[in-house]
Design a protein around this nucleic acid. Sequence first.
DNA 1: GTTTTTTATATCGTTCACGATGCAAAGATA
DNA 2: TATCTTTGCATCGTGAACGATATAAAAAAC
Lengths: 153, 153
Amino acid sequence: MDREAFLLDNQLCFRLYTASRLLTQAYHPLLSAHGLTYPQYLVLLVLWEKDAQPVNDIARRLYLETNTVTPLLQRMEKEGILSRKRGREDARQMIVSLTKKGKQLQEQLSEVPHAVGCTVLCDSITPETVPGLNRMLDDMIAHLQTKPDAHEL
Amino acid sequence: MDREAFLLDNQLCFRLYTASRLLTQAYHPLLSAHGLTYPQYLVLLVLWEKDAQPVNDIARRLYLETNTVTPLLQRMEKEGILSRKRGREDARQMIVSLTKKGKQLQEQLSEVPHAVGCTVLCDSITPETVPGLNRMLDDMIAHLQTKPDAHEL
DNA sequence: GTTTTTTATATCGTTCACGATGCAAAGATA
DNA sequence: TATCTTTGCATCGTGAACGATATAAAAAAC
């Protein structure tokens, strides 16, 4: 058995997992001031780009399952950030639209992207290296998404 | 307001968040076959490197809070993977040790690192690019860890 | 040696994340 | 038209994550 392979320091996934959690924590004070969580912020990003989308489209855009997104949207509806209405053409669809409050949040959070951008900057994360890092992660995401099954043991 | 900054495609954090989730999903079939979750696998990686550690050390190694790790360890104890005993020197500490079953899991999971390693390989993730990616993520983690507070709005 | 503070862990409540399952509307097929 | 299948969303149960709080032991201060 290759004990090297089990070293935590050799685990790419652990780094991604940790970096993701810590960066989400960096968002926390900025978002919680407005009663938002990070996944809720992601939903807002999707809806700010294009309002009035069915649950399915939002979930696909975030690579999440609808059973994750539905309760999230229900909480946001209770907060008055968005509204959910059955589609007129297709009554199975639940069309999610921003309320006035949801739209106003974009202005109130206008400093967030820049603030977080500054927070991550360090020796190897710079405006020059981010595009390359983005490309690698996009490649990885596309690859993992098409292969939901890992290799069999 | 800079609408560009709000585009989902410009969000590094979203990529990390997604890549982390999808890669964890890739581990799922390999681990669930042995009744493990990914965070539980991380605990095992820590204990396989060094057995009999207090909760605090395990949590710090994983950059997690103890109130996340404690219930995780309790579930693993119930599964018979590890045991938890009060420290003799310091009775506040809870020393976590692998059981025979916990040690045997390392052999049973010996193919996991290689299998997952193969799964992530793609155009921009190769044996050559991984060290560089690791370095960037390590840098980012170290940086975020020392700065728990994001910039004020 | 008693009080105070710190440290190590645990408990509680809320919010994801997701597999499994349920249900009703839409579409396909007979 | 009646039946079958698919699709879109919801519900349920389990396991993280984490802020807030609690508790007991150890260490420090008095």
